[in-house]
Simulated scan of single mutants.
Amino acid sequence: MPNILAPLRSRLARLGDAGRKRSSLLRRIPPLRDLLELAARLGYGARGFVYLSVGVLVLLATLDIIGDAVGVKGALEWLSQRPLGRVWMLLVALGLTAFVMWRVLQSVFDADHEGTSREGLGTRLSQLFSGLSYAALAVGAFVLFAGPRAADASEGVVESRERAAMLLDLPFGRWLLVAAGLAIFGIGVANVVKAWREDFSEYLDCSARMCRRVTPLARIGHVARGLAYLPLAGLVVVAGWHASAAEVTSFGAALEAVERRAAGGWIIGLIALGFIAFGTFSFIEARFRRIRPPRELKVR
């Protein structure tokens, strides 16, 4: 693949140089590396806005100020109904698209220089899956920009059950659904483990004192994200074990089910605060993260 991309990169570089020589307007355009860095920072900011919104809405739902707890998709639907909702959706969609682009640079082109060791490849693989999930979220934001609709928790549950039913219709569908639940459980556990093992200050370009102050936000946020996946994972595993799509629910409905349990309101409230912490740390990353776009788009 690098041999195929090399002639294309060279041709684009020559076209860019020729255009800058002929046009004063093109000469004012920053270099590609600067544009990629700007896009990455906007992407971190968009991620921060999404998680901050989710955390605030879940916290308000826990305090019975608004309706039921909502997931990320439900939060976007709720925001799309507010004043200037379509403007917000467009900005979020564009920001998440920029973040997906940065995830591609991290995972495919190794922008963070993780290398090809087992640990490095594992990190890059997780970045790739993260990019895919944010790509789906960006598409959802674009859809809401095209036509905002009221947030409906039951609709998310119906969609989840339809997907589960399609999976159950496949050969070994029951075990495939169990495997999907275990995969969700693994994502949750991985977030909790990352909270304690990762050195989040490694990628920040700030003073040691400031890094010590802000990295706890990342740890709290990852723990909250990890714990939030576990209720949904348990329900999906049980649904697969019983071969019953009716037992599958959505992310937001799973949190709502936890809230109805004893001390569930406190648990969901703490998770909401964790989402807010993660969103806040994403804004910090938007400002202080070391962004090092690869000099060459070479697959590593």
Rank of each mutant, 00 (worst) to 15 (best):
L176V: 03
L170H: 07
P7C: 01
V258C: 10
E155P: 00
A262D: 15
S244L: 12
R103W: 02
D34M: 10
G156Y: 05
G279H: 01
D199A: 10
R300T: 06
L167D: 00
L297T: 10
L255A: 12
T249W: 09
R163M: 14
A254Q: 12
A98L: 11
G140S: 15
A277E: 03
R213Q: 12
A218F: 08
G74K: 09
V157W: 00
L60E: 11
G67I: 01
A164Y: 04
H113Q: 15
G122M: 11
P31C: 03
E37H: 13
G264D: 13
A93G: 08
D17Y: 00
A253W: 04
R290L: 14
A153V: 13
R161W: 03
P7E: 03
V248Q: 05
G74D: 06
V193K: 09
L60W: 06
G240A: 06
A190P: 05
W102N: 09
I220G: 14
N191S: 11
R209V: 10
V100S: 02
A153E: 13
G45M: 07
A153D: 11
L125E: 11
D112E: 15
L204R: 01
M101C: 14
A257F: 10
V238P: 07
I29K: 08
L60R: 10
A138D: 07
F172S: 15
D64C: 03
R161T: 01
R161D: 02
R86W: 06
E202V: 07
V100C: 12
H242D: 10
G71Y: 03
S207N: 05
A146W: 03
T123L: 12
S282L: 09
A75N: 08
L170N: 04
A208H: 04
S80A: 09
L90C: 10
K21S: 04
F283C: 04
V192E: 04
Q127F: 11
Y134V: 06
L91W: 13
T62A: 15
K194L: 13
F99V: 08
G67E: 10
G269L: 12
A262S: 15
C206F: 07
G234R: 07
L167Y: 08
M89C: 06
S154K: 11
A165P: 01
A98D: 12
L8Y: 05
Y51H: 12
S10N: 07
L52V: 12
L273K: 08
T280A: 14
G95Q: 05
L91Y: 05
L217K: 04
I267E: 07
L63Y: 13
F172G: 14
T280K: 09
F145P: 00
F288W: 14
E119V: 14
A183P: 01
